[in-house]
Each structure stands twice: as structure tokens, then as C-alpha cells.
Design a binder for these strands. Structure first.
Lengths: 119, 119
DNA sequence: ATGAACTATGAACCTAGGTTTATAGCAAGC
DNA sequence: GCTTGCTATAAACCTAGGTTCATAGTTCAT
């Protein structure tokens, strides 16, 4: 598969595919080079990139994904579990903050926030 | 009050105070210049900046704050109410996405996500 | 009255996750 | 064999919310 086909199958722009490679989150086993230096992807790249999209959507950074991908061998199940649990905690913190923010905005609408008088 | 005192009272770095002014979210009534071009702030700036901090924390952008602040006169109560309601909707969208993300990560921990096998 | 501390400005720099541009080498259809 | 299209790279650009730097004028304490 050449890069254009991967882009079509994953919905990711070609520029993003090259960017991910630069960021070191595409293992070599998914992408080789042909005799003219063109990228040649294996079929499994599609599922792999779907995983990457999912991780990004659940608030993993590219750097964190890079760690998961590249330390694959020495990263134990326990370590991966910890990473996921940590991420869940982060999401819960964001949820708490969001809840407060919503309460504040509702108070503004109700006129119970002392904010309106100033702004 | 000079900029250093405002920084101490609000906890905002001096650089941020100057940055906010550049971004046009500090009304003139809160900041004048003395004979040497030094900024001279009124006492009310502190409460005003607390409001700004609150708005930023509930997901308003500096540009949105600028609109609220600068169109103060021609922005009706209804328009402001709409702006707050819109922001609440945005927060709710983020909440929904966050909920999905957490569910996904829990599924990963449970082993019910088909993701682990690949990564 | 002089050196340290405070103020000012514009411009460059920072992170994150990409996108765009300039330039050049292959490829495929007519 | 030529034109259009695909591929490659490095480097610059983008947004947002700031921070840092270089340079210059001001003020305070000794």
C-alpha cells in the first residue's frame, strides 16, 4: 500500500501520516521503503492507525503514544495498566472542573453569580 | 497602582497583564498612563481580572472575552445570555466526549476492548 | 550620583498537533 | 516523450495563550 491508499482508508491526511512517522509513533513493521524511497505500508497499518486515533481522542498525547509504542518490549502489562489508570484519573479531573464551570455559568444565567454586576 | 502591584494582587504575571492589554480585553477605564508612559491601574482592575480568570477557566477564549468587553454597549442582555447558553452547550459536548473516553479506557482495563490485542 | 530594581516596547520564542510550501525525483496515460 | 499526478524532504507556517529577550528610559536607596 502506498501512502495515498492509507490516507483514504484511515481518513487521515497524507501530511498527518508523514507527521506521525516523524513523531516516531509508527513502528517500522508497518512501514518500509521501496527502491525509490516511497513508503510501503502493510495492511495492518489501518487498524493500528485506528488505535492511534482512539488514543488521541481519549486524551493521550503523541508523546505518550510514542512511549507505549516504542517501549513495547520492556513495558509490562502492569505498566500499561498504570498508564491507562493515570489517564482515567486525568479525565476525571477534567470532568470535575467541567462540572464546576457549568455550575458557574448556570449561576450567571440565574443571576446568582456576583459576576454580572461587573461585566 | 502600578503593574507590579496588580500582578501581586491577582497572581497574574506582569507579562500576562501586558499580553491581555495587547489582546484588547482591558477596558481603558481600568488602565491609564502616567507622564512617563507607565501603566496606572484603578483599584477595580483586580475584581475585573478575577472575572477574566473565571471566564477563561470556564472555557471562554480571549477573543470571546474581548467581544463581551468591547461590545458592552451594544450587546444586549439577551445577547450575553445567548453567549453563556452557547458556552454551556459547548461544555456539555465536552462532557459527553469525556464520558465516552472514560468508558473506552475502562473497557481497556477490563479487557473488553479489542484494542489490547493490537498494541 | 550611581547601581539595582522597575517600567516600557516590539519581536522572537514556546508547546501541540498538525498543515503548507518549495523543490525535486518517479509514474502513468496518451 | 510529455504532461499530469504521486511521492519525497526540510523548513516555514498555523492557533492559543502566553513567556522571554533585547534594548531603553525611570526611580529608589545608599
Amino acid at each position: 500500500m502506498k501512502i495515498n491508499e492509507v490516507a483514504k482508508l484511515t481518513g487521515l491526511p497524507i501530511s498527518t501520516l508523514r507527521f506521525y512517522e516523524r513523531k516516531n509513533i509508527i513502528p517500522d513493521k508497518f512501514v518500509q521503503r521501496d527502491e525509490h524511497n516511497y513508503r510501503v505500508y502493510s495492511e495492518e497499518i489501518v487498524d493500528f492507525l485506528d488505535d492511534v486515533k482512539t488514543l488521541l481522542s481519549v486524551n493521550f498525547s503523541i508523546e505518550e503514544i510514542s512511549l507505549l509504542v516504542n517501549q513495547e518490549l520492556n513495558l509490562s502489562y502492569e505498566a500499561k495498566k498504570k498508564s491507562v489508570e493515570q489517564k482515567i484519573k486525568e479525565l476525571e479531573d477534567i470532568q470535575k472542573q467541567l462540572k464546576k464551570s457549568k455550575a458557574f455559568l448556570h449561576a450567571v444565567l440565574d443571576g446568582t453569580a456576583n459576576f454580572q454586576t461587573k461585566c
